[in-house]
Design a protein around this nucleic acid. Sequence first.
RNA 1: GCCACCGUGGCUUAGCUCGGUAUAGCGACUGAUUCGUAAUCAGUAGGUCGGGGGUUCAAAUCCCCCCGGUGGCUCCA
Length: 660
Amino acid sequence: MIKVECDGEVLEFSNEISANEVIKKAYGKKSGAVAALVNDEEKDLSYLLTQSCRVEPIQDNSNEGLYIMRHSCAHLLAQAVTELFPNAKPTIGPPIDDGFYYDFFMDPINEDDLRRIEKLMKKIVKQNLPIERQEHNNETLRKMFSDNSFKMEIMDDKIGQEVGSSVYKQGNFVDLCRGPHVESTSKLRWFKLTNTSQAFWRADSSRETLVRIYGMCYSSKEDLQNRENLLREAAKRDHRKLGKDLQLFHIDEMVGQGLVLWTPRGTIIRNELQQFISEHLILQGYQQIYTPHIGKLDLYRTSGHFPYYQDSQYPPIIKRDTLRKLSDENCTCGELSNLMSDGEIDGYMLKPMNCPHHIRVYTSQPRSYRDLPLRLAEFGTVYRWEQSGEISGMTRVRGFTQDDAHLFVTEEQIEQELLGCIELVKVIFGTLGMEDYRVRIGLRASDSDKYVGSPEKWNTAEEACRNAAASLGVEFSEEPGEAAFYGPKIDFVVKDVLGREWQLGTVQVDYNLPERFDLTYVGSDGEKHRPVMIHRAPFGSMERFCGVLIEHFNGMFPTWLSPTQVHILTISEKHKKYAEKIAKTLRDLALRVEVDSGDDTIGKKLRTHRKMRPAYLMILGDDEQKNETVSFMGPDREQNTGILLEKFISDITTEIKSKL
RNA sequence: GCCACCGUGGCUUAGCUCGGUAUAGCGACUGAUUCGUAAUCAGUAGGUCGGGGGUUCAAAUCCCCCCGGUGGCUCCA
């Protein structure tokens, strides 16, 4: 007698019975179950219950259920691929957010192949092939997959020599897998293959290159369509598209990859943001500085950025005389590079970060404990040679301006100063309504020796990071191994419309550079002490932040940020004078105003100007002119007719001042 | 950097499979119109098809190289 607890009731069976039968009995035939939870362990529906236990269904629309379906869908993909491309070797195929992927060792495929594969998958779904689990010992498994070195490698690592494991079979396709899976291919109706890419076996670029095929998979047609709609909508607010449409920035192939040209309208947004930050810097006791865009190689030899990070830097600038001399001596590029690394040749480098310059501002004067914390801030432009394939719009570029600052502090001041930094980030994100961000604390990896600074100092700094994050009531995650080699950090990560995460603000503790530059301050004891540095950039970079902001606001910026705040449209040309008069009044108040008194119809003008998404669209005609009023549509899209100009002015200026 | 795909006037785009110097709309400009809430009418200008090379009597169309973009991979001190 087997007693099975299911849906709060205890059912009794005289013989062993499958989880599926029990669930059907308790929940009916259309339970929506794709797998079962047997004593809290995920099992196939076909799993045979041989003794008393608890059973619950895993629904197809639950996170766990979707995960299982997506995993099964990956198998379905592999079945189709191996049928169409018999030489393809399946490697791994996990479920991911919204779908799945599978990596194959095979020749690259194109879009047509992808559609052929998808078609075959649909056919297999219709065939309603049962998906069966089989248990095998290690020896048998190795025989089964002897022609697939990748699967063999997985077995070497994961399963070891002794233990047997399971495979799943559908039709003629068998895959090494611990499951569970849906019971039949017919359960996998709502999927779509999305794209292919190249990946490396074990994410190691020195290993085999694989063809990765991505797909999405849902439990219902509606969910799949919703996802497709979401992606379509997201594409519309892509900052690269809006940046072009709204004339916010331009990236020109003649200027160079990843080099942003800020157009007049985009520059307004950037300036407003910088102004906003500057105000808060003053409140927090920062001092702003300017430093040049280049520095001597020696500066970066001291900081350690040269020659070690050469791959991600623009090549150095060598003096003309030196180059000429070396050229006369038939010096090769390799020799030149060595001479630079050795310090025998000097030159200049575009700065890949601002810290060394700021450090030299620190050392320009003797410092005492009374000077600390010294907070030096700069909107500093840096240049990094990002891989060409990584560059994208404003979010990943080769030249960008950080809202950077370096705080030189005593050991005891770290926590207090971290707190200030986080507060600043919080104010900025709060003002802009960016509530959907996460805080990540990067800590040491326990097993690595790449870190500089004593373990005691690290403990203090890590604790300070935790306390800073916690005391502000921000939710945060601790991630060991995410720290920089020179100190722990707090990162602020936001998601874009497509769910991709972007790191924006960052706060980092640094024990390394003070050491390398031999920074000191005189303490109250009259002795020299080593300060600690804190790097922080609440926006990260102006480019990335604006890119994310464009998508966040869908191009409809709050009035204080809007490149053009009021667009004045006239009903006919005879209202031109009145429009100019209103425009002048508003411009005198430093409002950004555009006037369209052309001969288009009002309908046409509305259509044209709405495209630029100004904060206010103002319409002026006979009624307004006669009564000295204005009519407008504001950010709320509501029509306001016959409003006194004074009222409009007081409302819009209040709105701008309070950054609503 | 790697794999796949893409690149036609300011923007969107037809043509490319089966080679014979390019299609339309928006925008711009000119004129008419002076109009009350998502496209007034007519006309004009503007491209040699991302760049270079090759095949050919002839290339936007076929081949090669390069540049740029998109999606991923890898990377992000």
